[in-house]
Design a binder for these strands. Structure first.
Length: 380
DNA sequence: TAACGGATAAACATGG
DNA sequence: CCCATGTTTATCCGTT
C-alpha cells in the first residue's frame, strides 16, 4: 500500500505528530479527531485486540493523535505496551486460542445485525421464494477456488471451517457445484494446501467432531483476497448488472454470495476486522504444520466503518478513488515499535475525522465486530 | 512467445 | 478396508 510510506513507525523521529496523553485517558474520552472538512463523519468502531477481555481495559488507551488536512487524515492510535500485554505473544496463555480472526466471535453476539445460521443459504436467497426453483447450474461461477474458500471461511461464525463445511458452503451457494463432478473438491483441497492464504489449524481434540483440520484465512493475505474478490465481483457486477439485480431473480447461472456484497459500502454494519497480532506468531500452538503468516511491520488490516454518516454521491465518488473503499473497509496499518502499538489510518482515506470517536478500548469492543456477511444486505 | 496463475487430474500418505 | 483429508506433482488452458 502506498500509504505505508506515509505512516512510518512513530517511534522514529519521522513520526513527530504522535502525541502521548499519558496513561489516564481512556479511549472513551478520547479527543475528537478533527480535520478540515465534513465529508464523512466516521465514528470508529471500538477497537480492541484479543484475546483476554481484561487485556485492554480503558487504561490501555494511552494516546491518540491525529492530524492532517482532509486528504491526509491520519490518526495514530498508540497503545502503551505495558498495558497491552495481550499484544505480546509471550504473554499468551494456552487458553488464548487465537487463530486468525476467530476472536471476533469468541464472545458471542458478535454479529449484531443479522447473524446467519451456519450453512444457511446466503441472503441472495432472500430474493427468491421458497417455492422458486434454483437457477440452472450450468455456468461456472467466476470466482476462483481461493475466492470461494475465502468466502466460505469468512461466512463462518468462527472464521474457520473444516474442508467438509467448505464444500458444503460452496454447494449451498453455487448451484453449479451441486451437479459438478467431484473433481472440484480435489481442487479445493489442492488450493487449501497450496495457497499461502489459508492456514490449517489443529482441531481442539477435546471437542473434535469429524476428521481433518480447520482452515482459516491467513490475515496477512486477507487484503489480497478481498481485492481479488472485489475485482471479480465488480467485474461481473458491471458486466452482468448483478450489482442491482440479484442473480437469482435474474436467472443468472451463478449466485453472488452475500460475502461479495460485503464489498458494498452502502451497508453500514458494525464490523471490526482487526486481526490480532498474536495470531500471526509462530508461538500460537493452535496452528498445525502450516505456520501462521509472519507479522509484517506494516501489517495491513481492514476495519469497516460503523454508523457512517455520508451522502450517497460522496460515497460513489469515493468508490472510484479507493479500490477498497467500496468494501466498507478502512485500511489500517499496524505497527509495533518499541513499547507502542500503532494503528494508522491511511493518509488518502477521504474521511473526515472531525467526529471520529475512538471509543473505549476494551473487550466490549469486540461486540461491535462482526463478520463480513454482516456487511451484506445493502448491495443489491 | 514466455511467464504466470488457475484449474484439473492423479498418486500417495495418513488417520478415523 | 473404506473413506475423508491433506500433500505433492504434473498437465492443460487462458491471460498478460
Amino acid at each position: 500500500m502506498e500509504n505505508s510510506s506515509q505512516t512510518l513507525p512513530p517511534s522514529s523521529p519521522s513520526c513527530p505528530t504522535t502525541t502521548t496523553f499519558g496513561g489516564s485517558l481512556p479511549f472513551s474520552s478520547s479527543p475528537q479527531q478533527t480535520c478540515s472538512s465534513n465529508r464523512i463523519s466516521l465514528p470508529l468502531s471500538p477497537i480492541s485486540f484479543p484475546p483476554s477481555p481484561t487485556s485492554l481495559s480503558p487504561a490501555t488507551a494511552e494516546s491518540i493523535h491525529s492530524s492532517s488536512p482532509l486528504s491526509h487524515c491520519t490518526a495514530s492510535l498508540c497503545l502503551e505496551g505495558q498495558n497491552v500485554q495481550c499484544l505480546s505473544p509471550a504473554n499468551l496463555s494456552d487458553q488464548d486460542d487465537l487463530t486468525c480472526l476467530s476472536w471476533l466471535h469468541q464472545r458471542g453476539n458478535l454479529l449484531p445485525l443479522q447473524p446467519l445460521p451456519k450453512m444457511t443459504p446466503l441472503p441472495q436467497l432472500e430474493f427468491s421464494t421458497p417455492s422458486q426453483p434454483l437457477p440452472p447450474a450450468s455456468s461456472k461461477p467466476p470466482y476462483s477456488f481461493s475466492s470461494l474458500i475465502f468466502m466460505a471461511i469468512e461466512d463462518s461464525p468462527d472464521k474457520r471451517l473444516p474442508v467438509k463445511d467448505i464444500y458444503e458452503w460452496i454447494v449451498n451457494n453455487f448451484p453449479y457445484y451441486r451437479t459438478a463432478s467431484g473433481g472440484w473438491r480435489n481442487s479445493v483441497r489442492h488450493n487449501l494446501s497450496l495457497s499461502k492464504s489459508f492456514c490449517r489449524i489443529q482441531r481442539d481434540k477435546s471437542q473434535s467432531v469429524g476428521k481433518g483440520s480447520l482452515w482459516c484465512v491467513c490475515p496477512e493475505y486477507r487484503p489480497a483476497l478481498l481485492e481479488v474478490l472485489r475485482k471479480t465481483h465488480s467485474y461481473h457486477s458491471t458486466n452482468n448488472n448483478l450489482m442491482n439485480k440479484p442473480a437469482l431473480l435474474e436467472g443468472a447461472d451463478y449466485g453472488v454470495p452475500a460475502v461479495c456484497d460485503s464489498m458494498e459500502i452502502s451497508d453500514l454494519s458494525h464490523t471490526l476486522l482487526l486481526s490480532s497480532p498474536q495470531t500471526l506468531t509462530t508461538d500460537n500452538p493452535t496452528f498445525g504444520e502450516n505456520p501462521p503468516c509472519p507479522l509484517t511491520p506494516d501489517h495491513e488490516e481492514l476495519v469497516t466503518m460503523e454508523s457512517v454518516e455520508y451522502q450517497q454521491e460522496e460515497v460513489c465518488e469515493e468508490m472510484e478513488k479507493d479500490p477498497l473503499s467500496d468494501s466498507g473497509y478502512i485500511e489500517l496499518h499496524y505497527y509495533q515499535s518499541h513499547q507502542y502499538q500503532y494503528l494508522v489510518l491511511p493518509g488518502d482515506t477521504e474521511l473526515d475525522l472531525e467526529t471520529v470517536e475512538i471509543l473505549q478500548l476494551d473487550a466490549e469492543a469486540q461486540e461491535a465486530a462482526g463478520s463480513l456477511l454482516d456487511l451484506a444486505g445493502g448491495g443489491y
